[in-house]
Amino acid sequence: MAGASGTLDLRGRSASARFEENPATRDNPWARRIILATSLAFFALFLVMPLAAVFVEALRRGLSVYVAALTEPDALSAIKLTLIVAAVSVPMNLVFGIAAAWAITKFDFKGKQFLITLIDLPFSVSPVIAGLVFVLVFGAQGWFGPWLRENDIKVIFAVPGIVLATVFVTFPFVARELIPLMQAQGTEEEEAALTLGATGWQMFRRVTLPNIKWALLYGVILCNARAMGEFGAVSVVSGHIRGLTNTMPLHVEILYNEYQFAAAFAVASLLALLALLTLALKSYIEWRTAQQGTVGDTP
């Protein structure tokens, strides 16, 4: 969705102490207590409890049930498929993100702003519709349906469809992290590299890439989290064939609908761990870039 998912912030979080010590910005102690208590209660209710529930429910029936749920063949094949889908779709969007950011930030051309809006488009489309569009193009009744059937190629209710839907919903992640950063960095360093005799590739690898590596990693992490966790879009195109076209989130759904709650939460807990890892890495990168932004920044 446009503007959200927190673009990489290079400024670092300012210290709240600055506001608390200033008599003009200090809140009344009671107001402070009420606001803090309310917001933290809300935070606990809506964010902490759902997260905790995943792990508690996963282990409710004991560790052996937990381990069994993760090691049964259908679970393993769901894990494998999720990894494959991410391994294909993330690099695709990575390459796209770099290409798009390069064209948009290093050159001037008409319609640039419109192009940026189009790149953000998948964030404003419901995941269900993201799945639907590929059914309309590649499904049995779709544009290429008859041709695909004649040539015995399966896209919908098969892995290619899942990959396409995933690529669609994770489309903007890398590009949108890179564009603001590269815009701010300008073109002077690349020009300097060229005046010093670097070839286009040398310029990109030695100057551009090191300058964007953290934002790139940030985009990849967010892209990966969404790719592994996508449910709605994938659910439309997958066909839910156990052991074949089930990703982890779809496997969770099936187990849950079969009232195998502990198993469902066991698989869900893996995805929740992935989410926590994503947040940890995200915070680390934000901390790193904030550090770099401030170290000896005295001109």
């Binding site: 995943v54 709605g232 849950y256 869900a268 989410a275 947040l279």
Partner: peptide, 23 residues
Amino acid sequence: VDALIDLPFALPTAVAGISLTAL
């Protein structure tokens, strides 16, 4: 708290769904 605010972005929606239902 600041880091966890983004949990809904990172947590797969199906996981959030079953967890909220359990609550």
